[in-house]
Design a binder for these strands. Structure first.
Lengths: 281, 281
DNA sequence: CGTCTGCTTGATCAGGGTCAACTCAGGTGG
DNA sequence: CCACCTGAGTTGACCCTGATCAAGCAGACG
């Protein structure tokens, strides 16, 4: 509760001291250092695993403070992470040291999955607030899947879910205007806060304009200007990191200003193709 | 070898007639209708599965002709697809009927993975040439993983690989200039052709400028102009769908025209962060 | 032979990037 | 307590990249 050093305690996260491992003393439960499989499933929003040994699968928690790195690019991969509380970002670093934000993991999100392929993390994860993370050794993860088929399926589901999210991201970056991107970003944040039990109408951004811009493929100035514009129109209220959602429906339906002709052509093309496909089938 | 009908036989695909299933007669091998697990692993570039029953895991091939849809958005999911030969595109359709190209699957690529999450395909796959696809019932896929641990790991690897690919895509769309995107697209095509045993120096595009543009978040005019520009500079030669790679290294290193200051600042910021992280660790 | 689709090229324009100045909040140190 | 510093955010002026609109061409096909 007391802020010890350089504090950036924006989140309501419990502030524990650092625990390298805690492994030297078996498994103790001071505070909340371990989670069982049921809690994991709940967090990940997947069906719970039935009849398993309570004590068999326990997963360690680790705390990170604002600004700390969870893993870096190239680091050997062996564990996945689930966010129990707090906010993070995952970033790619290009050859010039430029950051590209890929996601903003928060409660219930899993990250580190990109490490499976090459046995090395392909991205870097950084805490945007004090965080409580659950460590999932990848070996144990798959091992559970082997003995509990429902869980195995869930693992695939979680990975597929992540893939779909990225697809939506690509689609957004490829097709939407700056205003539409920012609008969608706010809507998705609002929805995620609602899922986590927070207010969907009033919340604090945990990331800078620069990070939002990087995530959305925009500059920080454009993000700032767009937020200001939304504010003036009355869609939201903005005061630094604090965002108030005034008209979520308007944000949700806000899109690129109609490039009319493209639509019509695409629609025609599609109906024709559908016809020919049906004919040849 | 003879061109029968409306030929778009740009690929070296064997031209078979349509087979609804062929299942009525057990498993026959006229031409090449079934693949065993070893062939699957080889295609997917994953380690082969040892000692399994040859006849136990056989996977059906299906042929599609240019323009045919393999699956559509919302269709019930139950099988994954592996490309044995031919070229395809996967697309998202927005609320106005606009297409957003997500990928161009070719030999050795798997698609349909986005269906796992919701039990419905989230994208649409269309054949850009005559194709020979291998059907992998998802149930059987996971079942193999259960009895052959190496294979299970490979499944995760393939999904993770796909995720990393999408991340790279997001990064590209978010940060690179039009020329850089087109250049990288050509490089990656060249490399994939090389992997498939074709020439990396001279190949035919299987997709339209419009599709390339959609994939790269550009208009077809910009794609066309950029290719012309590369042609004039002597990086490539272009004649409609035919592309000759002249200077792959130049294409590979081509990037956004230096926004100088950003780099420097980012570099400084990074080195500072690294320092403070080391101090607090 | 006419049509259609894909491709190229030109002219124009605007969305958003770039550069710059200024404000504000929080932390630091005298 | 105040001066100072730093990093985040806002806003304005300007300009460039790439989208839009338009015209023309070539190959495929009925």
């Amino acid at each position: 509760m007391t802020l010890l050093q350089h504090s950036d305690l924006s989140s309501g996260t419990n502030q524990l001291n650092e625990i390298g491992t805690g492994s030297e003393s078996g498994w103790l439960r001071q505070g909340k250092l371990w989670s069982n499989l049921t809690e994991i499933c709940e967090l990940l929003r997947i069906p719970p695993v039935s009849n398993y040994d309570e004590e068999e699968f326990l997963f360690q928690h680790v705390q990170f403070k604002t600004g700390q790195r969870i893993h870096t690019i190239g680091q050997a991969f062996d564990t996945l992470f689930i966010v129990h509380s707090g906010f993070l970002k995952t970033v790619l670093i290009d050859e010039f040291g430029n950051e590209q934000v890929l996601s903003f993991p928060m409660k219930g999100d899993m990250f580190g999955v990109d490490g499976i392929h090459t046995k090395r993390y392909m991205s870097e994860a950084v805490a945007l607030s004090n965080c409580d993370l659950i460590l999932i050794p990848f070996k144990k993860f798959t091992q559970i899947g082997r003995s509990h088929i429902e869980f195995e399926h869930s693992v695939y589901t979680v990975m597929s879910r992540e893939l779909v999210r990225e697809q939506a991201m690509v689609s957004m970056l490829g097709a939407l205007s700056a205003e539409a991107r920012v609008a969608r970003f706010l809507v998705s944040l609002s929805e995620r806060f609602a899922e986590m039990g927070y207010s969907s109408k009033l919340f604090n951004l945990r990331m800078t304009r620069h990070e939002i811009g990087s995530y959305l493929g925009l500059t920080l100035e454009t993000v700032s200007r767009t937020l200001s514009a939304f504010n003036e129109i009355g869609l939201i209220s903005v005061d630094q990191r604090s965002i108030g959602i005034k008209d979520i429906d308007a944000l949700r339906t806000l899109r690129r200003l109609p490039p009319s002709s493209v639509r019509a052509k695409a629609a025609i093309r599609r109906s024709k193709l559908a016809g020919s496909a049906a004919a040849s089938a």
